[in-house]
Nucleic acid binder design. Structure first.
Length: 515
RNA sequence: GGCGGGGUAGCUCAGUUGGUGAGAGCGCAGGAUUCAUAACCCUGAGGUCGCGGGUUCAAAUCCCGCCCCCGCUACCA
């Protein structure tokens, strides 16, 4: 079966994880779980990007060594991954020993290709932005402070630096975009990248001598790698590069990233790989941001929210569901307690939870065994036809990196099943035609089984419980078993509510200040 | 400034190459029902389809102008 290597961006642990980190992690987890259930050989990588000047400074401010500082922060990212049921195969840290080896091997390949050269870099540098600015991009404030375009202070910095011949790759990158238009998605992002590259690329400074919290440049004492070489290489490390066996996983099938880092993944990363003579990832998908009432979260706005607290408040699976369903993947979306509660009540409690409850309760009352299938009529055929169409629709959504569309399709079938029950009214048939009532309940239960299987990537724990209620053996829950219909007569455990309604009010605040 | 994407019911959005009375979900109102988590099912409420022109038998859908929002424009999820 085909293999599927999928990654999130690695997170910079200079602050606590927030809902944006959770969003990317959950979406990528959905992709990975879906592929596993679909029988593919999956590797799912996520982790943290721990080097750089900002970390070194934060550590010093905290009176810690950089290593001690990141150890403390990274623990919070790992805790978030645990709390959100992120099924990663590895949590990579750029401070891991094998990552240094991978980076240096990548560097050596780029050097061997003649794409690295030593020069001097001089310019106005913003520590906060980790960016150099051209003189005309800076302005001098009334108090004499020179600031960059983002308003952060800049200082004149001149240092020796290794440069990467990015300029050489203008043409190859444009060819890549032309040959493989789905390399960057959504398509609007590809257009932006093309426009960016068409303006021409300048060589890129890829080492620093001004600090040492980074991966040493091989054979060049005093130089550490510029953070993006270091960070991007994590995807190779996660595949086992430079060991020979890394061909099993590399190239990656998909990098899931935020729209703010599309350029690094769509321009620098393929250029590095081309230089190194390594195959390119198949696709890069830049998702949107989750805004709180239209605003990006920031500590100063006081709207930083701990995703772990939200998961605790609403339940891990419901919170995951909200993230996956409420936002068209690729676009920005908004969240609020009101929006979460409305979504969970409408979809999970009213539609899916109630469907499961009414069906299982009727079955329990009728003897607690899977009813006999019997002879279905037109209504049954119609219902099953809709359920039959679901796997293909979900696979299509998965291929398009659109979990929201997969959930749309699944919940349309949930709604159809509620309607089916209303029309067939098995509670009435029970008195007039018990066999017909059984047939109706069997069909409802069977559709619920398929829905539950397909919803596992979004809500692994709750769907496991639902499948338990249907007595579906644990080993019969991957997509290969979608066609193995429920067998009449199977004893079922007593059902219980899966998705209680949640109150839209929020008695306790789940926001919290972070470091 | 340049390039790109948008402005459609209270909210979030669908609306292929212009054409049966402008749609979905949520929210709201009424009804029906009682198997079920005050849930499910039915019905409805009417939005100048950003503004102004134009093309056409016919435009939300094409053209022109204008207003507003957003993204990218060399390094923050």
């Amino acid at each position: 079966m085909s293999r599927y290597y999928v990654t999130t961006a690695i997170n910079y642990p200079n602050g606590a994880p927030h809902i944006g980190h959770a969003y990317e992690a959950v979406a990528t987890d959905w992709l990975a779980r879906f592929a596993r259930l679909d029988g593919r050989d999956v590797r799912f990588l996520t982790g943290t990007d721990e080097h750089g000047l900002k970390i070194a400074q934060a550590a010093r401010a905290a009176g810690l060594t950089p290593r001690a500082y990141v150890d403390g922060m990274v623990a919070r990212f790992v805790a978030m991954a645990d709390a959100l049921a992120i099924s990663r195969d590895r949590f990579i840290r750029t401070t891991d020993p094998d990552h240094a080896r991978a980076c240096q091997a990548l560097w050596q390949r780029m050097a061997d290709a003649g794409d690295l050269y030593l020069d001097r870099y001089a310019g106005w540098y913003s520590v906060r932005d980790e960016a150099f600015y051209a003189e005309e991009e800076t302005t001098v404030l009334a108090d004499g402070t020179r600031v960059g375009p983002t308003g952060t202070p800049v200082a004149w910095v001149e240092e020796e630096s290794w440069f990467f011949r990015l300029s050489r790759f203008t043409r190859p990158l444009l060819d890549l975009y032309a040959r493989q238009p789905d390399f960057v998605q959504p398509a609007s992002r590809l257009n932006e990248m093309r426009a960016f590259v068409e303006r021409g690329l300048k060589d890129l400074s890829v080492s620093r001598t001004s600090f040492d919290w980074g991966i040493p440049v091989p054979g060049s004492p005093g130089h550490v790698m510029y953070v993006w070489v270091d960070a991007l290489a994590n995807y190779l490390t996660g595949a086992g590069f430079p060991e020979p066996g890394c061909a099993r996983w590399w190239p990656a099938d998909l990098h899931v990233i935020g729209k703010d880092v599309v350029r690094f993944h769509a321009v620098y990363w393929p250029a590095f790989l081309m230089s190194a003579g390594l195959p390119l990832p198949a696709r890069v998908f830049g998702h949107g941001f989750i805004l709180n009432r239209g605003e990006k979260m920031s500590k100063s706005a006081g709207n930083v929210v701990e995703p772990v607290a939200l998961a605790a408040r609403y339940g891990v699976d419901p919170f995951r569901y909200f993230l996956l369903r409420a936002i068209a993947f690729g676009q920005d979306g908004e969240w609020s307690h009101e929006a979460i509660a409305a979504r969970l009540n409408a979809d999970l409690a009213n539609d899916l939870g109630n469907l499961a409850q009414r069906t299982l309760a009727m079955i329990a009352k009728a003897g607690g065994r899977v009813p006999a299938r019997g002879e279905g009529g037109e209504a049954e055929a119609r219902l099953l036809a809709q359920a039959d169409a679901l796997p293909a629709a979900c696979r299509e959504a998965h291929a398009a990196v659109r979990p929201d569309l997969a959930l749309d399709a699944i919940f349309a079938v949930v709604a159809a099943t509620n309607l089916y029950l209303s029309e067939r009214a098995p509670w009435s048939l029970r008195k007039s035609d018990p066999a017909a009532a059984d047939t109706v309940l069997w069909h409802a239960a069977e559709v619920i089984r398929r829905v539950a299987i397909l919803l596992q990537p979004a809500m692994p724990e709750r769907m496991a419980r639902l499948l338990d209620f249907l007595a579906v053996p644990a080993e019969c829950r991957d997509f290969g078993f979608l066609d193995r219909a429920l067998e009449g007569g199977t004893a079922l455990p007593p059902p219980a509510g899966l998705f209680p309604r949640v109150e839209p009010d929020q008695p306790e605040r789940v926001t919290s200040q972070t470091v």
